[in-house]
Design a protein around this nucleic acid. Structure first.
Lengths: 193, 193
DNA sequence: AGGAATGATGTCATGATCTGTCATAGCGGT
DNA sequence: ACCGCTATGACAGATCATGACATCATTCCT
């Protein structure tokens, strides 16, 4: 018999998500979250660096996926293909969690600071991808540019995927596969009127 | 004779920049800034929403520049050209302030939260540009994609420009002009090894 | 000239976020 | 039985941020 119920971290995370959904991010205090999870606020801050991090800590589990998809393929590979593999691997990991991701995204989009945190985290991923590409022998300038464009696309398609509630909507992976070619089309042919 | 020295806002802003440079962002309290500016902390928070905002408030002055560059040209215009005009106008406004921008950027880059705030602000600009493009008759999907790519490029070239200390380094505008064509090249031809 | 309105600032109180430090109690190994 | 390890609680305190109200030089109105 442990002295306390196990898994305080998981209980804090779901308590936080519930409360943020019920009342909105800024109307929830860390004390509220801790109370619902049956611990003290001090324990919250031991598990999560700050109040925001409770929404983002899971993301760190995805980074290895990203790096593996870049490093793994053997033989010469096209840069676009590598980006597609990396983002596709990310997409596969995210797809099963669509519902909870959407709830999370609604909270994030409702608060500028959270949006900033999300962008900063994705910028870090972008940096990691860029490094991975350079390690494969790509030109550093090209790698940075590719990673930047890739993540611009990824953000766009992720939002579209989460926002589209229909059952037969394209999956995130499918959206990504069609997005990269779209860049060329847009650059070549887009005009106003 | 005013009751207090004028321009408390400007004094707060430069006091903040000085102190952040001297001691690092997180080691400076709002009280420190207020003290050096000769006011109380309460006055700081009347001028700036929070401690971060003192580094970003000037940015808001740039948004009209951006929107004007999109809305102004008459007659049918290529989307890439419009992006170039908008970002070029931004660049022209920033170029004279290179030194203070670089000091500011060093502070921002040293702190994740500040990085997030910067990205969030640029995301908002990106959104505004996208809306401006749609109002000119561009397809909404294309507009969003173009704005995203444009700002990915802009961030990249801005950092490169600020990081290159040499006197004969290309200006920000020049960098931007060569960056957009680079997108096509990279997408078409980049391979590893 | 004189009084009222204005507006930037100070003062005080309060709540939220985050950190440092020490005590406590169950668990596992010896 | 004892010892350390670890997760947690308890408490104090710094910093950030906001609301309410007071102050007083300037300005405007009559």
């Amino acid at each position: 018999m442990p002295r306390w119920p196990a898994d305080s971290r998981a209980r804090l995370a779901s308590a936080a998500l519930e409360l943020f959904t019920e009342r909105g991010y800024s109307a929830v205090t860390v004390d509220d979250i801790a109370e619902r999870a049956g611990v003290t606020a001090r324990t919250f801050f031991r598990q999560f660096r700050d109040k925001e991090e409770v929404l983002f800590s899971d993301d760190d589990l995805l980074l290895p996926t990203l790096l593996l998809a870049i490093a793994e393929p053997t033989g010469p590979v096209d840069a676009g293909t590598l980006m597609e593999r990396a983002l596709g691997a990310l997409a596969e990991r995210m797809e099963p969690a669509r519902d909870s991701l959407r709830r999370r995204q609604e909270i994030i989009d409702s608060d500028v600071a959270l949006t900033g945190r999300e962008l900063a985290k994705q910028a870090r991923w972008q940096q990691e991808i860029s490094v991975g590409l350079v390690e494969r022998g790509f030109d550093p300038g090209d790698a940075g540019l590719l990673a930047a464009i890739g993540f611009a696309l990824f953000r766009r398609e992720l939002h579209a995927w989460l926002a589209d509630p229909s059952a037969d909507a394209p999956s995130l992976s499918e959206r990504l596969r069609t997005a990269l070619p779209a860049v060329r089309t847009v650059l070549d042919s887009s005009t106003d009127r």
